[in-house]
Amino acid sequence: MDSQSDNDSHSKMDPSHVHLPQPHLPHAHVPGEHLPHTSRDIHINALGIGLATGAYGLSFGAISIASGLSIAQTQSLSLFMFTGASQFALVGVIGAGGGAFVAIATALLLGARNSLYALSLSPRLDLRRRAIPAAALLTIDESTGMTMRYSANVQDRRRAFFATGLSVYVLWNIGTALGAIGASALSDPGMLGLDAAIPAGFLALLWPRLTSNSRTENQKMWTLAIVSALVAFLLIPVLRPGLPVLCSALVAVGASLIWGRNSASEHLNRRGQ
């Protein structure tokens, strides 16, 4: 089973060599990889990340109820979808009156990055076939991030992945339940400003993607975010609810083409010199 791994050269597993869209941990403290670590460290950090995520499970539960879903539907999303940004997006689009197709498409587009995480985790975890369905469910920003950090050997990587995934899964679901039950006890969620919690939540999910990379990368991301927001804003009166958000995906496609060509030509220039 472990054919591939324990003695992987360090450079191959060094996260800095992995050119992935980096998972963004929500304000969790993860030690640098230079620190010595034991399984206890891994478990403590996994618990810390779980607690931080559980706290925002509370807001997901409340917002989902305010968007018109029942407690059971809200809980099902946390149990089976289990990927925060897609869950927020789904209930956000439904709450705004977007149709079923648009809500599902938006959630799927946001969830596409999980395929990429799974793709890069697959050789690092080197799992038995039977373990893959469970591992797939737990494949999210946080578990991927922790696996990349504890990269020394396959046991540590598996421990980091499953400890983080399970801790977030349990606490995210407890948070969801408490938030949903709390919000459904309110008579008028709008009066409490819960509708304003939705865009604030999206901004908070977006924030680490705008601020945690290199300076030039951050500038690119800010540009992309502002143009996308502007496009969606201008399309509000033109298209059915929900569609403006889907159209903003085209901005990402455009940016990908433009920046892809630039980086390719830069590469050629550098080689020419």
């Binding site: 869209p21 940004a85 927020f88 997006a89 956000g92 938006t106 587009l109 946001l110 596409a112 990055r113 865009p199 999206f202 901004l203 999910l205 977006l206 993607r209 705008l210 991301m221 992309l224 975010a225 502002i226 996308s228 927001a229 502007l230 496009v231 969606a232 804003f233 403006p244 958000v245 159209c247 903003s248 995906a249 901005v251 990402a252 940016a255």
Partner: peptide, 11 residues
């Protein structure tokens, strides 16, 4: 993709 979609959702 997530940057575009989340920014659009904020707006």
């Amino acid at each position: 993709l997530p940057v575009s979609l989340l920014a659009a959702l904020v707006a």
